[in-house]
Design a protein around this nucleic acid. Structure first.
Length: 215
DNA sequence: CGAATTTGACCCGCGC
DNA sequence: GCGCGGGTCAAATTCG
């Protein structure tokens, strides 16, 4: 199983997506479906789900449905946002990693670093370097447990990652097996059987990840 | 030489 | 209205 890979199987995810956006080809870090267990999913806070911790930083939309993948509300909390958020979705997840910059297939350019009060660790700001793509992400070490890195994505990529498109092979899963959050509106289907494989290559990041076998 | 990173300053929004 | 905190910008520096 994923744990044997010695990778970031302790990953927490939180994501909210505009239900209207179904055309985006998103490739976010691997989700260890096999590690996602039960947990009363609630918005606005991290959820410890077995080895994984989920957080849903955005408040639940008042009327939009929460699209859940895997047929299990406790597995994937993909919340749809209101119209106002149709262009600004936010996804947050916590990953146990020694490196802060996880290789998710996209090319990020750092544009800022800031010490925030909510955390003793500085927060780094990255922007997708792809032309026309305004997706941003914030990366910071978890104040409670520095072993974890909290990453928050802001926005939706309007392009495929080099690893997502055929031939790239950068990401740990094939495009056809895009993770549920890549197709929010239709995410009510179970994750692909090979979802576990998503946990494989976070490449450099993965290489630097601490071995989970000790935990 | 070009691209990416670093770092301080500035701007904006929110709470008091 | 003021102060604080968070986020972004832009110039300088560093690295490939």
């Amino acid at each position: 199983m994923a744990a044997s890979l010695g990778l970031c199987h302790e990953t927490s995810y939180a994501y909210s997506y505009p239900a209207s956006n179904t055309s985006s080809s998103l490739c976010f870090p691997p989700l260890m479906a096999d590690h996602i267990v039960d947990g009363g999913c609630s918005f606005g806070e991290f959820l410890e789900l077995g080895h994984s911790v989920y957080s849903l930083p955005l408040p639940p939309p008042p009327s939009q449905p929460v699209v859940v993948a895997g047929g299990n509300n406790d597995q994937y909390g993909v919340s749809s946002s209101s119209a106002a958020a149709a262009t600004t979705s936010r996804i947050g997840f916590r990953t146990r990693s020694e490196v802060e910059v996880l290789d998710d297939g996209f090319k990020w350019r750092k544009y800022g670093k800031k010490a925030v009060k909510s955390s003793p660790n500085p927060r780094n700001y990255y922007r997708c370097s792809a032309a026309g793509c305004g997706v941003k992400k914030r990366v910071e070490r978890d104040g409670d447990d520095p072993r974890y890195v909290v990453t928050t994505y802001d926005g939706v990529h309007n392009h495929a990652t080099p690893g997502c498109v055929g031939g790239g092979g950068h990401l740990p899963y094939p495009t056809s097996a895009a993770p549920p959050w890549s197709v929010p509106a239709a995410a009510a289907s179970p994750p692909p059987a090979h979802a576990q494989a998503w946990g494989a290559p976070l490449h450099a990041a993965a290489a630097a990840h601490s071995s989970e076998s000790s935990f």
